[in-house]
Design a protein around this nucleic acid. Sequence first.
DNA 1: GAACCCATCATTTTT
DNA 2: TGATGGGTTC
Length: 742
Amino acid sequence: MLGLNDRQSEACSYTEGPLLILAGAGSGKTRVLVHRIAYLIDEKSVDPYNILAITFTNKAANEMKERVEREIGAQAEGVWVSTFHSMCVKILRRFYSRIGGNNNFTIYDTDDQKAVVKEVLKTLGIDPKMYPERACISFISTAKEGYKTPEDMDLEAGSDYRAIQMARVYREYQKRMKLNNALDFDDLIFETLELFQKDEEVLELYQTRFKYIMVDEYQDTNNSQFELVRLLAAKWRNLCVVGDDDQSIYKFRGANIYNILNFEDEYSDAKVVKLEQNYRSTSNILNAANAVIANNEGRKDKRLWTENGEGSKINYTVYETEYEEAHGAVNIILEKNIEGRPYSDMAILYRTNAQSRAIEEKLVYANIPYKLVGGTGFYNRKEIRDIVAYLKLLSNNSDEVSFSRIINVPKRGIGQTSIAKIRELSTEAGVSMYDFCKDEANRGLLGRAAEKIGGFIELMKSLVPVAESGDLEQLYEDIMEKTGYRNELQIERTDEAAARLDNLEELKNKIVSYMEEAEEPTLMGLLEDISLVADTDDSAEDTDNKVTLMTLHSAKGLEFPIVFITGMEERLFPSGMAMDSDDPDAVEEERRLCYVGITRAKEELYLSSATTRMMHGNRNYPLESRFISEIPKEYMTRTGIKANVIKKDPFAGPASFGGTTPSVSTPRYTAPLPRTFRKATSPMTDVSSIEYGVGDTVRHIKFGKGKVISMVKEADDYEVTVAFDTVGEKRLFATLAKLKKV
DNA sequence: GAACCCATCATTTTT
DNA sequence: TGATGGGTTC
């Protein structure tokens, strides 16, 4: 086959029956997948409609789509190329109702999940200190990744009290999700699996359709995804999985490396093709990577080789501190840039996000533009989440997380108490919070807040026709205007408010471009895009002349001519957590991460460590990483402690490199903003109406009944000390505590 | 309702 | 060190 090596050709043309392609780093994996699809269509006359290609990320899916299209033109449209999650959404939107679901579900992300878990813990009376939300979410996620129901988890728990409690949380969580008509990311896979298990007709439909199935990054699949693929492929058994066990670095996310290691057991007639020729790196780099990964046990036997030249040796430098280390990298970057290397040829990788700080500081100081990958995404900004919550509530009235989020945003004088009451009463009535509030008679039960809630309902009602019209840009504008959200930010006149407005403008841009690009734009579709297609780095930014900073995890799948891996220290890399783990595979996974890091480099690789580093506010004196000692001397030069003084940037000022002005780059969405709005303080309420005195028994909304011990006059308030029956003595302020005489 | 204070806690992350 | 969340104080 044209332009392919023998192994690659073989992988493309072996189309019938199960096939495992073990694709080493830089071995042209995507190329093979793309050619394989083209081969099926052009040579084997397979209808594109019968081909399914599954990836993990949207980026990978888009790249594959584009390349297939370039190869075979318009026919490519028929091929279903999608991420696991988008594929499942598509299926569930069509058939979820057949197993009692609602096709109109909303997708919840981790933050939404957190809100749900919070409520769950409250209703179950479980102490979040003992069972932190994070832990609960991760428990639930692990269960679903293993295709286990709350009942399964309860059985599995045996007499383990903690596990029993967790299973309870899981059960209640699922109940709430159902009430909210929401599915989390894991549910998307889980429920599709349920659908296939329970509805043979639907399964049969997809099985029949997908005669040829390809799964990328197979080493990252979890058990549910494995099962999903197994079911889909069961009819024709033309399943081609591509992956590299040596690049399995997502165990913490449920990935099961045995899915790829045991593929041949599951499919005994599987053909295995190994792609071992590397087209990316110099042999020094490749040999070093091979040497490191060879220390792992239980991996598929393979060894990457290359026809590329030896290249320069890997450079390992020990610095005194993390700042020296950053200096060192920055100096090299400056030198390389002067030699003519664009900044975009260089990347600095690290194990933990916290390490970026020192590096960023030095880059800023040296006036080097950089791009920080990862961190808090666009859709996690408070203002974005607020507006999106309006959209979500309009799309799904049952979404109580969104309802609770925005009922008092911007401020409408509807407090926690009212919200809690709505939640309670609506649950009793068996309707959603929003539907409950829609009924004027119901609002009457809510006392003082009734009118304000009525206002909110009227507001939402006025948005419904706009939402139904399908003009999402108008809908966005109406939300911004009618809620007063824009106005609130505008009158604030702070930099922070301006940044928020900028971000909202960016959201509008996303909405507009969605309207333009989507085949059939709908509100639901937009929300899907927002949830499923995390803000991928804009292409404009990619091409900019900037140094890339990111974690080793984020670097998977990428390549750069010059790579820096910083923090080569025990307990940092490998991480302390991995080292302390009972699971011997934990350190092996770190080693795989190291392998991934090394193999990102095409021409030059710089490793570094510091003899002392601040971690969690403590000064540590870490040992050099074991991975350093695993690299044979012949491929690496070692430099001892070297004090680094940052060189003066000869181009500081208006001068420029290669046509572009080096400007200090900050991440697009700038520094973290406080989560709350600043606003004028509220006016004091009337004190004269206090109806109780010392010795009286009073009731507090939260603390219950208690006896007034003392009342001290303050400026324009009383400080009341109350001995409560349950929580003991509390000092409260009369205007705020709203104590009621009993 | 919101500013502030203190305790706590801390990989990796896409969907 | 630093971000974050809950509780306290007006």
